[in-house]
Design a protein around this nucleic acid. Structure first.
Lengths: 235, 235
DNA sequence: AGACGTTTTTTGTATAGATAAAATGATTGT
DNA sequence: ACAATCATTTTATCTATACAAAAAACGTCT
């Protein structure tokens, strides 16, 4: 495309009319046929522009009822939660990883619930520490379901981190995240080089496969220094 | 569609081949022409399925080089950050809002930087407290740019919250979010009914318009009780 | 070997025409 | 007044064909 594909120019044009308030939320806008005539293009071209704007939440379309400007409502916000090593290297810092513990152990109640297994079911338990330029960056406490991922038992996670290994070898189809703030205490504080009572940002994640639950992890970050940032905004 | 549109069935079919490992990350998959013959449909139909899968991050496409299965990497995770009132009412709790302070004041350095204005530029400053069933749920500290949003000066935010008013009256086109953990102290602690040293989850947001910076906000949540959860996973 | 066009393949988009599905609004029957 | 039925409008998708753009592959010349 020398400049911009027609359907993209049309998208921009329509979006401008919404943004500028020419078309207000709730307004009915002309049909595809009519717009195609106005833009001097095929209906399919207008259709694509309208369809994408609807997917992006700018418009609402219903057969027979036509296309309306969507009423603005809350939008979802997407955060990138990349591999720690990539995240750290992206800042220019040197990445370094340490495996603190690796055991097959019975699932504690909370983790069992998270993986939807009975408490006490054996699972692979890993505790790792990720460093940026020798300073502790993230503490990882992970349980891997050895029923869904039996291969994991044969991997010693001394070299590659569990996260990287899982991402590359056991792609998940579904995930659930939860974020909250807590206070550092005991071993978590010591590992992260914090004192008891310092704030920590806790990210919890559990993932599934078509085969079953894959893993449940808790990431701890030093609270004040670490920030999760948005990549972009959707919906 | 009585059952499922052909392009959707094709999408499913292709996705299954990726998920099942028939096609592995990095593999070159057949071209559009070939797939169209195999599926017995037009190239455009296959094209749409492939295009959408590429948008979703499952495939990678390049002209002349063909289509490959994407190497799994981190995906972005989308959090819904809805209006507090909706969020609270969704849990079944009674929502209640209190305006603590409303003033036109000179921008402090941090907020000025965030809005890309000079320190000391007058702006509308609001401090509000949101309650769920009479318990403090969120403390909101907001600065609104009165150059971009002059109408805001005439609104007393006694009834409707600033967030709701802005969402409904000043749609933004771009936003940036940041999340971190901190410790409650002083007035923040008192407002949220916490003691100094309790953990708080801090969400910062700044939004823009085509006209300029709209607002910068800091939301404080009681740390241990509040959780941000994923709505869905994308890319 | 290496630099530089040229060819060719593959995806990307546009078009016109056709048919399907959904939902509204009107009509009909009770 | 109400329910069921039907026609009509509007979006949704598919097809076949054409051309454009990107990038790899090839070949030529130095």
């Amino acid at each position: 495309m020398r400049e911009l594909a027609p359907y993209l120019r049309i998208k921009e044009d329509l979006l401008d009319r919404v943004r500028s308030g020419t078309w207000k939320p709730g307004d009915l806008i002309p049909g595809e046929q009519r717009l195609a005539e106005q833009f001097g293009c095929a209906r399919a071209t207008v259709h694509r522009a309208l369809r994408e704007l609807a997917e992006e939440g700018v418009l609402e379309r219903r057969r027979k009822a036509g296309t309306r400007v969507a009423r603005p409502t809350s939008r979802s916000v997407a955060f990138d939660i990349p591999l720690v090593e990539d995240e750290i290297r992206a800042t220019g810092a040197r990445y370094h990883y340490e495996l603190l513990e690796r055991e097959i152990a019975p699932l504690p109640p909370a983790e069992a619930a998270s993986l939807e297994r009975a408490t006490g079911t054996p699972a692979l338990h890993l505790r790792c520490l990720h460093f940026a330029d020798r300073r502790p960056y993230q503490l990882e406490d992970r349980w891997i379901d050895i029923d869904t991922v039996p291969e994991a038992v044969d991997v010693d996670f001394a070299a590659e981190g569990a996260n990287g290994w899982l991402v590359h070898n056991v792609p998940w189809t579904d995930a659930e995240h939860s974020i909250h703030a807590d206070l550092a205490a005991g071993e978590i504080a010591r590992s992260l080089n914090l004192t008891d009572g310092d704030p920590v940002l806790v990210v919890e994640r559990r993932t599934w496969n078509d085969k079953g639950p894959v893993t449940t992890v808790r990431f701890h970050h030093p609270g004040r220094s670490h920030r999760l940032r948005t990549a972009f905004v959707a919906r």
